[in-house]
Design a protein around this nucleic acid. Sequence first.
DNA 1: CCCTCGATACACCGATCGGTTTCCCCCGGT
DNA 2: ACCGGGGGAAACCGATCGGTGTATCGAGGG
Lengths: 190, 190
Amino acid sequence: MATTDKASPRERLLDAAAELFYRDGVSIGVEALCRTAGVSKRSMYQLFDSKDEVLAASLERRLPSYEARLTSGPDGAGTPRERILRVFAQLEQVSGEPDYRGCPYLSALVELKNPEHPAHAVARGGKEWLKGVFRAQAELGGARDPELLARQLMLVFDGASARAGARVETLDDGLATVTATALLDAAGLE
Amino acid sequence: MATTDKASPRERLLDAAAELFYRDGVSIGVEALCRTAGVSKRSMYQLFDSKDEVLAASLERRLPSYEARLTSGPDGAGTPRERILRVFAQLEQVSGEPDYRGCPYLSALVELKNPEHPAHAVARGGKEWLKGVFRAQAELGGARDPELLARQLMLVFDGASARAGARVETLDDGLATVTATALLDAAGLE
DNA sequence: CCCTCGATACACCGATCGGTTTCCCCCGGT
DNA sequence: ACCGGGGGAAACCGATCGGTGTATCGAGGG
């Protein structure tokens, strides 16, 4: 197993949590979590206060790689339009993988109806970050209303990831990029 | 209680299930469900084969009113553009209610990761119906690519409902209608 | 009047939930 | 060689999970 080899118990727990939480939803049991992480329940509970904290920490840990993947490409290069469209192209690409289940942060927000849940704030942060990226590029590109454009792009991004993850839509024909492009054009982005 | 008065056990169960499932997610227990429905577990299990079937049936039961609400307005009237935008206006309106938690069918699709779940098919049906409405109006309105436009509108609809339900976005300034309008224009709808 | 049938209450099933505690082993320090 | 402590295995906690078995009740129809 990839997550069972040599790594600190903390890392093994966080990796296993990210995977199981993503695949099976919030209903992972502590038992199953610790079993696949190769860590005893006792150790888990002295590393974290509760299962909820483990979930929050696991979402937080994935943030950097999540952000890196979405904004990947020839480093720092490209026009604002290209940078924005690259996010949607990445989404289209990853959504084709057979075990794709949608954006983990959106799933968390939908599943954790209680906004007080520690993981809820982390997920909100992830979403806020992406919106910030869109907004910054919208400003750079001279969009008429950068904030509005960023919010519109988030609708498309979350709608696309949710629908693709639920297998009621397919993105591999460029649906997301073509939709985003229409909005960029309408917003007057260069 | 609204759902506890006089109605068949079946109806009381279905109503309670719709409410609890929507408010608390898939994790409602059979015990709590039956308690709030005022129906004994024994009765529930001779009306339905399993809890999953109750959930599927409750989603199915709500379909007609769900469809009616989204397409409401001066009956049969309006241009295709107006008919489409009315759906988004309705979404914006209902999303303002304090206990709005997003489209129940999208939530079901996200929470029930297993596509074999009986409720999964029902939820897919609800989504397919709305897409069909969009497509039909897109054709009537002479859109360049009705199928594409319908899929784009679904992205916006689901993104908007998910984000509003998760309280990371607010629709009351017309975000959904303005975004849909941009896509209608880009698609060449009359 | 009685009898059946639908519905109820409630105990019960094994499994699992999140979380705690106990016991023991092993490893490092001296 | 000895001792201390951290971590793992597993028992244990009360609660709840989805689901069933049983006995009772009450209303309606012959």
